[in-house]
């Protein structure tokens, strides 16, 4: 902080200086911790992304080679597409469907029962949820049951079917992740002041129109939290995939985070992995900035 540059001054201006500085002290603990762990690591990865490094031998500086390689790598293209599928899938299930469920739940009497059931999978970790769903969806789970029931063509390990497995995993992760958003939406819906809604109903607004025109705008602050949180996490989708398919078969279900991890830690190409991480982070940063920009208008 710019405190050190102060000129020799009278006591009064010293006091004013202190007054100016104190607000920044509130930032100190958070900033220090984030800088030590996050910014330092980001910076470390940034440097590694310009090198060839196997984690054992010396790093070799190779300039933009990793970034160039990225755009020539067919796996990278497929991972990017899969990542986008994950992003859209997340917007659909854990955000949109969660909103629908939340609206529905606010209309019934047994709110807490439904809340608890839908939240249940959220108490599991993504890894545990992944393991459970894998046993259910693989050879001796549901497919086996369907096979016994006579649907022979369905009796195969669904998670090993290229491209289909990504969709299955998106749904699985929706099953697991819907709870948090649902709770937030319900809180938001219950908190909405009655007056504007009653006024709208008086004016004849009904059903879907009532929601799109009146309720949803009032839900905006919560919506922003849910949306950003889901977006950031969906861009980084990793755990579910790592557990359920490991990115396979033949790398067809990899997302960018999985490709990054595989290149960095399985193939020991830490430079290339870091380059993918940088690209992923910058993308998320830009999206976040666009979504958050408005909330800072007039704050300065």
């Amino acid at each position: 902080m710019e405190i050190v540059k102060s000129k020799p001054s009278s006591k009064l201006s010293m006091k004013r200086k202190i007054e100016k500085i104190t607000p920044y002290l509130y930032l100190v603990p958070a900033v220090i911790l984030v800088v030590i762990f996050c910014i330092y690591s980001d910076f470390f990865s940034l440097i590694v992304s310009f090198t060839e490094w196997d984690g054992l031998n010396e790093m070799q500086f190779i300039g933009f080679q990793n970034y160039i390689q990225m755009f020539q790598d067919p796996n990278f293209l497929l991972s990017s597409i899969n990542t986008l599928i994950w992003v859209f899938g997340t917007l659909l299930i854990p955000v949109f469907i969660a909103l629908l469920f939340a609206i529905a739940i606010t209309h019934v009497k047994t709110q807490s029962f439904f809340k608890i059931v839908f939240y249940l999978p959220n108490a599991l970790s993504q890894t545990i949820a992944g393991i459970i769903l894998t046993t259910i969806l693989s050879t001796y789970g549901l497919p086996h049951l369907l096979g016994v029931m006579g649907f022979e063509s369905l009796a195969k390990d669904w998670l090993t079917v290229p491209y289909i497995n990504t969709l299955i995993m998106v749904v699985s992760s929706g099953w697991q992740g819907i709870g948090l958003n649902l709770i937030l939406f319900i809180v938001g819906l219950n908190q909405i002041p009655k007056e504007p809604i009653e006024a709208a109903i008086m004016e004849g607004a009904k059903g879907i129109r009532l929601y799109t025109k009146v309720v949803l705008p009032l839900l905006k602050p919560i919506m922003l939290i849910v949306l950003l949180m889901s977006l950031v996490n969906s861009f980084k989708s990793f755990d579910t995939i790592w557990v359920m398919t490991n990115g396979g078969p033949f790398r067809t279900s990899e997302t960018l985070a999985v490709t990054m991890y595989k290149e960095a830690f399985v193939n020991n190409q830490l430079g290339y992995g870091s380059a993918i991480a940088m690209l992923l982070s910058v993308t998320v940063l830009i999206i976040s900035w666009f979504l958050l920009r408005d909330t800072f208008k007039g704050e300065e």
């Binding site: 100016k20 607000p23 920044y24 509130y26 930032l27 958070a30 900033v31 984030v34 800088v35 762990f37 996050c38 910014i39 330092y40 690591s41 980001d42 470390f44 990865s45 984690g55 950031v232 980084k236 990793f238 985070a257 990054m260 991890y261 960095a264 830690f265 830490l270 992995g273 870091s274 991480a277 992923l280 982070s281 998320v284 940063l285 976040s288 900035w289 958050l292 920009r293 800072f296 704050e299 300065e300």
Partner: peptide, 27 residues
Amino acid sequence: LKIKGKMFWFMLIYSGTIFPFQMYIIP
């Protein structure tokens, strides 16, 4: 509070959640 660069400070701390955590392991 009265501080300069509010969005900067916000984004600085917020950026900690953006990077894929797997890459934090080695550093």
